[in-house]
Design a protein around this nucleic acid. Sequence first.
DNA 1: GTATGATTAAAACGATCGTTTTAATTGGAT
DNA 2: ATCCAATTAAAACGATCGTTTTAATCATAC
Lengths: 231, 231
Amino acid sequence: MTLSDSRSTTPDTRDRILDAAEALFVEHGLEATSMRMITGRAAANLAAVNYHFGSKDALIQAVFRRRLTELNRQRLAALDRIEAEASGAQIKPSQIVEAFFGTALALAADTEHGGSTFMRLLGRTYTEPNGFVRQFLAEEYAEVLERFLAALYGSLPGVPREEILWRFHFMMGAMSYAIAGTDALQLFAGTFDDADPQRLMPRLMSFLLGGLRAPLPTFVPTDERHGLDAA
Amino acid sequence: MTLSDSRSTTPDTRDRILDAAEALFVEHGLEATSMRMITGRAAANLAAVNYHFGSKDALIQAVFRRRLTELNRQRLAALDRIEAEASGAQIKPSQIVEAFFGTALALAADTEHGGSTFMRLLGRTYTEPNGFVRQFLAEEYAEVLERFLAALYGSLPGVPREEILWRFHFMMGAMSYAIAGTDALQLFAGTFDDADPQRLMPRLMSFLLGGLRAPLPTFVPTDERHGLDAA
DNA sequence: GTATGATTAAAACGATCGTTTTAATTGGAT
DNA sequence: ATCCAATTAAAACGATCGTTTTAATCATAC
């Protein structure tokens, strides 16, 4: 065997490196995390990363792929189940939203197996400037996005697809901030006591569905202000 | 004079460095942008950054402060105007949202004076892991956030403040992705033709207000699934 | 026990980083 | 014209980066 037996009682060097890198990437970012920081935290030799993964870039991909493959598999499985239960009938947008974002939030709530750590990393990586990371994420997400967007199109007939695409993008942003919330919100409001992850899910879901089902914007071609009526 | 006369016909070295750094920070990120890249693009000597700003960190702060001070000044002015016109009466949440996010989007639509460039940078910096950047942004935003959150609390009586705080956070995430949308969405959906910045404003506003005014989540203390009714 | 392949250890590689130092050049005021 | 402060230019600093090389150690099959 060459790589990743991965079925041993104590985590081998390869897994320790992945865990250390994941945690450090969240804490300092991809670029600011050095190989020496990673191998130091993993109690491995400096050359171990290049030996097991080939390069730092390959390690970054391995860190993301390890979690992302399983997350997207769960997402597709949830969508499959919904579509099977509907058996051709109309699917509610809330079901689709919950399948996509609920699965992610469930992983983000899993603090025992490092899922929470990874989701914080993933949330801030959607806007990562690093070119190869962006392309890698795009490829990893291609199938899932295609499936879920198609499902949303079908569940919201009459709504322009561009509008759905934008709103899905907005929902991704809200989710990203929701997951990173513990980091960012404490900077905003001094004391932010209610970071109960159990409440985060319904909070985000209400917000996302409210935004998704909001009245369509009335675009005024001139520079006249748009008229959104009150709350 | 010691620094920043800043009223000359041709941009001086200091301004050229700020513009170059701003553009490079968007393209490559803060850490991945080197002093040599900055001074090279600005047609300045390598030592010019340390001479005019003192350090790279100080330059980063200068890049953000230059735009952020004016943006937040406009935001507070818009809020002042709204509260003056209301003269004690109830203010609609849509007005507050538009004052905060509309001002930002207007800056993001200003491609002539680099406002668009900066807002893309700002959006991805909210989740920046770099410690000193986060603290700097928190300080720059402290007053504005306090004012706007207080205004939202007043305009949404009966809604728990924690809920408003979270939803404001979600709105920040949606706006961040909205501004970075041109970058990120083209990775998602292959051809994404409708990036008309004129339509972005009403699109985002509808979504934000829909999310802000969504029904409050019903939190179920057990692990029972939450019941959000359909679309 | 010994050979063999996988892994770890230790040291060094060239490159680039942010910063500093020293010198040259500029532009006004006297 | 001359001095002086501000700015620019050029070169080097030590530190750290990702990576590679070479040697030592480990585990296992024979």
